[in-house]
Amino acid sequence: MVIEDPKTNKLIEVEKLPDGTYKVTIYDKKTGEKKTITMSKKDLEKLLKAL
Rank of each mutant, 00 (worst) to 15 (best):
M1I: 05
M1C: 15
M1L: 10
M1A: 13
M1W: 02
V2R: 00
V2W: 01
V2Q: 07
I3D: 11
I3Q: 03
I3N: 05
I3W: 05
E4Q: 01
E4P: 00
E4H: 04
E4N: 02
E4D: 05
D5A: 01
D5K: 00
D5C: 08
D5H: 01
D5P: 02
P6R: 00
P6T: 11
P6C: 13
P6W: 03
K7F: 12
K7W: 04
K7Q: 12
K7N: 12
T8I: 04
T8S: 10
T8M: 03
T8C: 06
T8F: 04
N9S: 06
N9L: 08
N9Y: 07
N9K: 07
N9W: 09
K10V: 12
K10M: 14
K10I: 13
K10N: 15
L11G: 02
L11V: 10
L11A: 10
L11H: 08
L11W: 04
I12G: 05
I12N: 02
I12W: 12
E13P: 00
E13I: 05
E13V: 07
V14S: 06
V14C: 03
E15A: 06
E15I: 09
E15H: 07
E15L: 05
K16N: 13
K16G: 13
K16W: 06
K16L: 08
L17H: 10
L17E: 03
L17T: 08
L17Q: 07
L17S: 09
P18E: 13
P18W: 07
D19M: 13
D19I: 03
D19V: 06
D19L: 10
D19K: 08
D19A: 06
G20I: 00
G20P: 00
T21R: 12
T21L: 11
T21F: 05
T21W: 10
Y22H: 04
Y22G: 03
Y22S: 07
Y22T: 01
V24T: 03
V24S: 01
V24R: 00
T25H: 06
T25F: 04
T25I: 10
T25L: 06
I26P: 00
I26Y: 06
I26N: 05
Y27E: 05
D28M: 01
D28I: 02
D28K: 00
D28V: 01
D28G: 01
K29Q: 07
K29A: 10
K30L: 14
K30R: 10
K30M: 10
T31F: 05
T31K: 05
T31Y: 07
T31V: 05
T31S: 04
G32T: 07
G32A: 03
G32W: 09
E33D: 09
K34G: 14
K35P: 01
K35A: 12
K35M: 08
K35D: 15
K35S: 03
K35F: 02
K35W: 04
K35C: 03
T36C: 14
T36K: 03
T36Y: 07
T36W: 06
I37P: 00
I37M: 08
I37E: 13
I37A: 11
T38I: 10
T38Y: 11
T38F: 07
T38G: 11
M39E: 01
M39I: 07
M39Q: 05
S40E: 08
S40D: 13
S40I: 10
K41W: 08
K41P: 04
K41E: 15
K41F: 03
K41D: 15
K41N: 15
K42Y: 15
K42T: 13
K42P: 15
K42W: 10
K42H: 14
D43V: 02
D43S: 05
L44D: 00
L44N: 00
L44G: 03
L44Y: 09
L44S: 01
E45C: 03
E45K: 05
E45M: 04
K46G: 13
K46H: 12
K46M: 10
K46R: 06
K46P: 08
L47Y: 10
L47K: 01
L47S: 01
L47I: 09
L48F: 05
L48A: 01
L48K: 02
L48V: 04
L48H: 02
L48W: 03
L48Q: 02
K49D: 15
K49S: 14
K49R: 04
A50M: 08
A50G: 10
A50C: 15
L51K: 00
L51P: 05
L51G: 04
L51M: 10
L51R: 00
L51S: 07
